[in-house]
Design a protein around this nucleic acid. Structure first.
Lengths: 152, 152
DNA sequence: AGAGAACAGTTTAAAAGTCAACTACATTCC
DNA sequence: GGAATGTAGTTGACTTTTAAACTGTTCTCT
């Protein structure tokens, strides 16, 4: 007796695909909106994390973990942000292997300009489209997903 | 009097970030699991759409729309799938501009092998982690998001 | 019929992301 | 103390994605 695959039922299938398509469209839209500032959503998220950190700086690995990116990818991206003078890299005193990525004044200024637009987009195309209960459900589920999959 | 930005409140912020991180981790995991079959989740979704279509074939633009991808990207991806002999391209009789992408026998066979693994992963790392109500909420919200943003 | 606009898909080059190897420092453990 | 192992980050080669230009076909409108 074989244990057959537990396929998704019709409703689950529809919901799963709605999530895939909705996410694709949402990310494309947010990316698109940020382009007027010369940023992608990925760059934006990095800048935000930095802006919230003490001294507006974080260690590379810390950023990578928070955004679930490979260190390699982060190195490349921060390299570009640095070339654009939005971020500055300094070496870490207490751990000589380490590198701080620090938001520059220009980076902070750009972020302050971009943020209202971006948040408006997140609201208009996502948050404000869901009831508070449904939106809370999303938070709950994806928190569990994150937890379940864990770091890397 | 200025209309200030409606920032996300603390809970919304947390939920939004949970969604971003959870999605990043989930997609990375699913991608990873599919690698044993030489596929990415993007390739997989293309093959699935083809497998469900009449005669297991679809027009390029149709695939692009369903997955919200640029035509250019699709051209490249289908080119790779064709090189791997999982898909075959034929020109469309009724519209000479058009191209059919058709699943090959090998493509169908590979998909049948990959599908149970993939679905198990989707369940384990997502569907089965959510209550049916919460999962339904996700379907609802992202359906609305898709609808709201619309095609391209 | 024929000009002009729109559409389907491809191409090319550049940008971004991935993967594996590598350097340098830090930690562990005998 | 020092060999072995682990961690932080970078590098370079390669793959994938993006953006814009382009070819060929179809549609629209007079």
């Amino acid at each position: 007796m074989t244990t057959g695959t537990r396929w998704l039922d019709a409703e689950q299938q529809v919901a799963w695909r709605a999530y895939l398509l909705g996410t694709a469209r949402l990310m494309a839209k947010l990316d698109d909106d940020l382009r007027q500032f010369g940023l992608g959503i990925n760059d934006y998220e990095i800048l935000v994390r930095l802006s919230e950190a003490p001294d507006r700086r974080l260690r590379m690995a810390e950023i990578a973990d928070r955004l679930h990116q490979s260190r390699s990818r982060l190195t490349h991206t921060v390299g570009r942000l640095e070339a654009a003078e939005l971020v500055r890299r300094t070496s870490c005193k207490s751990d000589k292997r380490g590198v701080w990525a620090e938001l520059t004044e220009a980076g902070y200024t750009l972020l302050q300009q971009a943020a209202p637009f971006h948040v408006a987009g997140v609201r208009e195309n996502f948050v404000d489209l869901a009831s508070p209960e449904d939106f809370a459900a999303i938070g709950r589920v994806f928190d569990t997903v994150s937890e379940h999959i864990g770091q890397r």
